[in-house]
Design a protein around this nucleic acid. Structure first.
Length: 619
RNA sequence: GCCACUGUGGCUCAGCGGUAGAGCGACGGUUUCGUAAACCGUCGGCCGGGGGUUCGAUUCCCUCCAGUGGCUCCA
C-alpha cells in the first residue's frame, strides 16, 4: 500500500523545560558545516537539530529582552516549536502588539552584544532557592515537578539566566534571523483553570534568506486560505444570524454533492447501506446513550409537546434504533449502516474557524456492527478505504491512536480490549502512528487521521472508534449460530470526518484550482464578439447535453476580460469561440486554466476529453 | 469561554473630533472586440449594535455582537 505519511508536529506543548518540540526540518548546517551547540553537561558538539537550537536560544533572547524592558515580568516556559518558538510570560496588564517592535529592538541589541552562553547545574534545593529568590514562581513549580533524579541545569547569557535543559547556541549572534510573529493568551500548563499568561510567538532561522523565504511562504499560504477562496469562488458563506453555521452557495454545493457521490461510489461496493436518521430525538435517548452525561454542554435542546428533545450532536443513537428495529442475525454482520448525518454541536465562540470548525456539519458517518472476531478485518478494510480516498486527493496525513479519557464510561477491561484491537489492526498493517493518551471518545478509543491546512495546522478528519458501551447501554443484540443472543461491537467511523472541514482542506490543498471532476464549473464558454454568440449557445448546449458543468459568458465584453474573469474563478477550461470556430461549426478553441491556449480541436474531441477527466477523476 | 487584535458601500482598502472617499463590482449607455481588466455615466454607506464623554464622534471611553491569531475543547 502506498501511503504518504509525515512525522507529527504538534504546535501545542504543555510540559516544562524539556518540551522543545522536535522539528522535522532537515538538519542542515550552514554551508555544509554542522553548527556547534552547548549541551547542558557543558560539552560543545555538533547540534543535532540546528534550527531547534537556534529557535530555543532565540526564545531565551526574547525572555531576556522582556526582562530588561519589563523586569516585573515572570517567566513560564519558552520552547522551540515546529515553525519557531514562543515564550509564555506573566505580567500585570499583559502585553499588546504595540510592545512587540520594542521587544524586537531589544532582542537585536542582545544579539549584537554577542553574549556567550554558559551552562551550569544546581542541586534541586539550590535551584528552587535561586528561583524563589528572584520571584520566578513558575520556574519554582517547574523544578518542583521535575523527576527526583533529574539534573537541573541553567543557561546564562550576560545578565540573563534561565532554567533550561538546552542545548543552546554558543553566542547570541547566531540568532540574528528572527521575527516576533504574534501574541496570544495561553493558560499556564494548558489548563483553562489556571491563570492565562501572555504567549509571544516568533520564528527564527539560520540565516536571513531562510527567514525571508519562510515569511514569503506564509504570505503565499494566506492566499490559499479557504475562507478567502470560499468567498472569492462563491462556495460558502456565514451570516451574523448563525455564527458557525455555514451556508453552501451553488458552487460549494456542487463540490459537496460531488464529494458525496464519490463517497457513495466507494462505499456502496464495500457493502455499506445508507440510512438517514432524525435531526432531533427525545432527550431520554441521549440520557441512555450517555451523551447527556458526557456531552450536554455541546448539545442544543428544545421542547416538543412539553417533552425535552435534543438536536443530534452525533448519529450513533439513531443508527442503533435502526439496528434494533428488527431481529438481527450473525449472518447480517458486519452490518454497515452509513449516514450523511447533519450534526449540531455548540462549540465555544472562540473555537470557530471557517469551515474547519463549525457548529453544524455533515458527517460521512457509518456504524458497523460486528462480532469480536470481525474487528481486525473490518478495521483494516476501513483504513484501506480511508487511505484510498485520501490518496485520490494526494493528501499527506498522519495517524494517532487515542486512548481512554478522564471523562468516559465503561469497564477498564472493555477499554483495554478495544484499545488493543485498534493497536493490533494498525500494527498488522504496519501503519505508523503516535499514541495520544486520554484523547479518546467518552465511549471508546479511536484511530484518528489528521490532514494539514495551508499553513501547516493539522485537522482531524477521518476517525475509527471502537465502542463496547453503546451496544450495552442500548441492549443491542443479534442471534448467533448457536441460537443464543449475543452483543455486537460497534465501530463508529468517518472518512471525510466533517464534509465541511474536508472541503476546507480541499480548497486549501488545491488553492481553489479544483481538478475537472471537482470543479463547480468545468467549462466556461466565451464568445469573442456578438457574431459568435449563436455558436456559443449551441456549444454550451452540447456540453450540457454531455453532462459537462458549463456556463456561457455572452456579455458584451472583450475576450481578454472574459478570460481574466474565468481564470480568476479558476475554471479548468475556457472555450474561446470567435468567427473561425463559428464558420467551421464543429470546433472549439480550448484554453486551459493551467496550461494556457491549447488551440482548436473538434468539439466532440474536447467533450470526450472532459468526460474522461471527469470519470477518471484526474487530478 | 479566556488573552490580544480587527470591524468604513457587494469586495479590497484610505480617512480618524467638525456630520465620508478610492478602485473593483452592480446598473444605464457607447463599443462588437481573438487568449488575464474598452470608454462614459449612475446608483450604493445612519462608518458592526447600544450607551457615554463632547457644542459636535466614523474618529475618544464603556459594553454587546461578529471576525482574526492563539489557549482550552474538538470532526
Amino acid at each position: 500500500m502506498t501511503m504518504s505519511l509525515r512525522t507529527i508536529i504538534k504546535r501545542k506543548s504543555y510540559i516544562g523545560r524539556e518540551n522543545c518540540e522536535h522539528s522535522e526540518r532537515p538538519l542542515y548546517g550552514r554551508r555544509g558545516i554542522a553548527m556547534k551547540a552547548l549541551y547542558s553537561d557543558g560539552s560543545v558538539r555538533d547540534a543535532e537539530d540546528e534550527l531547534k537550537v537556534i529557535r530555543h536560544t532565540t526564545s531565551h533572547i526574547l525572555a531576556q529582552a522582556v526582562k530588561r524592558l519589563y523586569p516585573e515580568t515572570k517567566l513560564a516556559i519558552g520552547p522551540a516549536i515546529a515553525d519557531g518558538f514562543y515564550y509564555d510570560m506573566d505580567r500585570e496588564g499583559g502585553f499588546t502588539e504595540a510592545d512587540l517592535p520594542k521587544i524586537e529592538e531589544e532582542m537585536r541589541k542582545i544579539v549584537k552584544e554577542n553574549l556567550k552562553l554558559e551552562t551550569y547545574t544546581l542541586s534541586r534545593d539550590k535551584a528552587i532557592e535561586f528561583e524563589k529568590g528572584r520571584h520566578e514562581d513558575y520556574k519554582v513549580q517547574l523544578i518542583e515537578d521535575l523527576p527526583k533524579d533529574e539534573v537541573i541545569s541553567f543557561y546564562k547569557q550576560g545578565d540573563f539566566t534561565d532554567l533550561c535543559a538546552g542545548p543552546h547556541v554558543l553566542y547570541t549572534k547566531q540568532c540574528k534571523a528572527f521575527k516576533l510573529t504574534s501574541l496570544a493568551g495561553a493558560y499556564w500548563r494548558g489548563d483553562e483553570h489556571n491563570k492565562m499568561l501572555t504567549r509571544i510567538y516568533g520564528t527564527a532561522f539560520a540565516n536571513k534568506e531562510d527567514l525571508e523565504k519562510y515569511l514569503n511562504m506564509m504570505e503565499e499560504a494566506k492566499k490559499r486560505d479557504h475562507r478567502k477562496l470560499g468567498k472569492e469562488l462563491g462556495l460558502f458563506m456565514f451570516a451574523d444570524e448563525g455564527p458557525g453555521f455555514p451556508f453552501f452557495l451553488p458552487n460549494g454545493m456542487v463540490l459537496k454533492n460531488t464529494l458525496m457521490s464519490y463517497w457513495r461510489s466507494i462505499h456502496v461496493p464495500a457493502g455499506y447501506k445508507e440510512i438517514s436518521t432524525p435531526m432531533m430525538l427525545d432527550r431520554k435517548l441521549w440520557e441512555m446513550s450517555g451523551h447527556w452525561d458526557h456531552y450536554k454542554d455541546n448539545m442544543y435542546t428544545t421542547m416538543v409537546d412539553d417533552v425535552p428533545f435534543c438536536i443530534k450532536p452525533m448519529n450513533c443513537p439513531g443508527s442503533i434504533l435502526v439496528f434494533k428495529s428488527e431481529a438481527r442475525s450473525y449472518r447480517d454482520l458486519p452490518l454497515r449502516l452509513a449516514e450523511f448525518g447533519v450534526v449540531h454541536r455548540h462549540e465555544k465562540s472562540g473555537e470557530l474557524h471557517g469551515l474547519m470548525r463549525v457548529r453544524c456539519f455533515t458527517q460521512d458517518d457509518s456504524h458497523i456492527y460486528v462480532t469480536p472476531d470481525q474487528i481486525t478485518d473490518e478495521i483494516e478494510a476501513i483504513v484501506r478505504i480511508i487511505d484510498r480516498m485520501y490518496s485520490q486527493f494526494g493528501f499527506k496525513y498522519h495517524v494517532e491512536l487515542s486512548t481512554r479519557p478522564k471523562d468516559s464510561m465503561g469497564s477498564d477491561e472493555d477499554w483495554k480490549l478495544a484499545t488493543d484491537g485498534l493497536k493490533k489492526a494498525l500494527e498488522t498493517m504496519k501503519m505508523p502512528y503516535v499514541v495520544n493518551e486520554g484523547d479518546g471518545a467518552f465511549y471508546g478509543p479511536k484511530i484518528d487521521f489528521h490532514l494539514e491546512d495551508s499553513i501547516g495546522r493539522t485537522w482531524q478528519c477521518g476517525t475509527i472508534q471502537l465502542d463496547f458501551q453503546m451496544p450495552q447501554r442500548f441492549d443491542v443484540q443479534y442471534t448467533g449460530a448457536d441460537g443464543q443472543k449475543h452483543r455486537p461491537i460497534m465501530i463508529h467511523r468517518v472518512v471525510f470526518g466533517s464534509v465541511e472541514r474536508f472541503i476546507g482542506i480541499l480548497i486549501e490543498h488545491y488553492a481553489g484550482k479544483f481538478p475537472v471532476w471537482l470543479a463547480p464549473v468545468q467549462v466556461k464558454v466565451l464568445s469573442v464578439s456578438e457574431k459568435s454568440r449563436g455558436y456559443a449557445v449551441k456549444v454550451t448546449q452540447q456540453l450540457m447535453d454531455a453532462g459537462v458543468r458549463c456556463e456561457n459568458d455572452d456579455r458584451d465584453e472583450k475576450i481578454g476580460y472574459k478570460i481574466r474573469e474565468a481564470q480568476l474563478q479558476k475554471v479548468p477550461y475556457m472555450l474561446v469561440l470567435g468567427e473561425k470556430e463559428t464558420a467551421d461549426g464543429s470546433i472549439v478553441a480550448v484554453r486551459s486554466r493551467d496550461r494556457g491556449d491549447l488551440g482548436a480541436r473538434p468539439t466532440a474531441e474536447f467533450i470526450a476529453q472532459v468526460q474522461k477527466e471527469n470519470a477518471e477523476r484526474t487530478n
